[in-house]
């Protein structure tokens, strides 16, 4: 078994790691702005959407259903079970569904980005690009950043729709709520601006999860163990960052309305 390093060096290593991660973000943004290869970018964006949407759909569908069960259970004693749709519409579309959609993209596509880049690093394919006189950031990170920034808002909107469908389905089929009233209540609290905000959140969260996943991939240690660790760290860090950013965005956007 490997011995754990002493606390002070571990702290120093953690600070160096976080500094390296923070320094990577502007480089990733620059690589994205420098115009990544178009075909690679289009294919990766399509891949991110196609592979993430099923996960996002299932996760947000069930979440919408669960929120409805809880909301109906809380409101029923006061005779307002049908009003559950309003609570789910508000809280789900504004907060829960975008966050879960971004988290699902981080788990599905962020992990893929990290593991692909980590494998390329471990097998020295990134060094091969450098020795050819090519910039791995522009060639590898740029297209993945664009894919995450464009694909995540799509997934967020799909997540909102799936969450509403999940709420409607359980409300009508299991809780016996009126079909028309439930649907109207779901939409009564949601305005077009909420969906725009969701999409904007998707752009920001997509950039973050793309940058975190790419950085962890390119900072991977050697061998299969390095690839595994990088993938694991990418998912954990992306989930934490996406949750924190989601709260910060909500506070900035909706906090004024409180």
């Amino acid at each position: 078994m490997s011995a754990r390093p002493a606390p002070l060096p571990r702290l120093a290593a953690a600070v160096a790691d976080l500094t390296g991660a923070a320094a990577f973000w502007p480089r990733a943004a620059l690589a994205t702005l420098r115009g990544p290869p178009l075909l690679d970018t289009a294919l990766l964006t399509l891949r991110l959407v196609v592979t993430s949407v099923p996960v996002v759909f299932v996760v947000t569908f069930f979440s919408g259903a669960m929120l409805t069960v809880q909301a109906a259970a809380s409101l029923s004693p006061f005779g307002g079970g049908a009003l559950a749709g309003i609570a789910v519409g508000f809280g789900g579309v504004r907060e829960v569904f975008p966050l879960l959609a971004a988290a699902s993209v981080a788990a599905r596509s962020g992990a893929e980005i990290a593991s692909q880049l980590a494998t390329m690093k471990a097998t020295r394919q990134t060094d091969a690009l450098e020795v050819m006189g090519l910039d791995p950031l522009r060639l590898l990170v740029g297209p993945r950043m664009v894919a995450a920034v464009l694909g995540t808002p799509v997934c967020v909107l799909v997540g909102c729709a799936a969450g509403m469908l999940g709420a409607q389905a359980i409300g009508v089929w299991q809780l016996g709520l009126d079909r028309g009233a439930m649907w109207n209540n779901l939409w009564s609290g949601v305005v077009a601006a909420d969906l725009v905000v969701g999409a904007v959140k998707g752009v920001v969260l997509g950039f973050m999860l793309g940058a975190i996943s790419a950085r962890e991939g390119l900072a991977a240690g050697p061998g299969a163990r390095g690839v595994g660790r990088a993938t694991n760290r990418a998912v954990i860090r992306a989930l934490v960052a996406v949750s924190a950013a989601s709260l910060a965005l909500s506070s900035a956007i909706y906090g004024r309305l409180a």
Partner: peptide, 9 residues
Amino acid sequence: LFQDNALFQ
């Protein structure tokens, strides 16, 4: 030419 070839898989 890299030790493990570094071919794009």
